[in-house]
Simulated assay, not measured.
Amino acid sequence: MLESGFTVRRSGQRYDCTAVDALVERLVATVERRSVGPDLTVADLRAAQFGTPMFGPGYAVEEVDNFLAEAERLLPARDGVAGQRAVAQSGRPVQGELTKPSFSRVRLREGYARDEVDAFVDRVLATVNGLPVDRPVTAQEILNTRFRTVRLSEGYDATEVDLFVDTTAARLDGMIGQ
């Protein structure tokens, strides 16, 4: 999933390790839906600033910046149907409402068929957000779902889709258990 493993430098361009570790911890908690404070947003990631240690070690700037750019894709997008509905009604997204994720597209390596993933995600979002849906999904159905893999046509990154499926199943299971 999220592997930070940054190179530690004693000189040159580097970020304060403690500040970077705190942001990464908050990012992981947001992605895994653990409550450790307010969820991290894409805007928070883009606005993150880290000091440079005067003396002592720090993380390689380029590695941290690349990691954060990749991590943006794992945070919930605010452009899904549910998110649009919430924004239209209140002027801002509703806290806790699941919005449509933005998966990376892959080609020439194994990915999931986009049409299958999109259709399933739409059903999941409708179920979790309490919208009308022909066939609401269950946590067990989410965990048992398998998507057709593609290699030559454009597909979605399988790791990102699997992470979404796992976190959504846990969320739906938690809703049912309440």
Rank of each mutant, 00 (worst) to 15 (best):
D157L: 04
L108T: 06
G177A: 13
L108E: 12
R9M: 11
L2E: 13
A158F: 04
V94N: 03
M175T: 00
L108A: 09
F50M: 10
D16A: 12
C17I: 15
T159R: 11
A43N: 08
G56E: 09
D39A: 07
G83N: 11
P57V: 13
R148Y: 05
A119F: 09
F67P: 00
E141D: 14
A47M: 13
V64I: 11
D162A: 12
T41Y: 01
G155D: 05
E141G: 08
I142W: 07
D134T: 15
A48G: 08
G51C: 08
T145C: 11
F147Q: 06
A60W: 06
S11V: 10
Q140R: 14
E160K: 07
Y156S: 02
G56M: 09
Y59N: 03
T145W: 04
A69F: 11
R85G: 06
R171N: 02
E141K: 02
V36P: 02
N144D: 15
L125N: 02
P136W: 10
L27T: 04
A86D: 15
C17P: 14
T127H: 05
A71K: 07
L2D: 09
S4R: 11
G58W: 10
R109S: 10
L143S: 13
V28T: 09
L125A: 12
V28F: 04
G51S: 15
L143I: 01
E160H: 03
D162P: 02
A169C: 13
T127C: 03
S4C: 04
A82M: 14
G96K: 10
R14I: 08
V81Y: 10
E154F: 05
D79Y: 15
V106L: 03
N129F: 06
S90F: 14
A71F: 00
P53A: 06
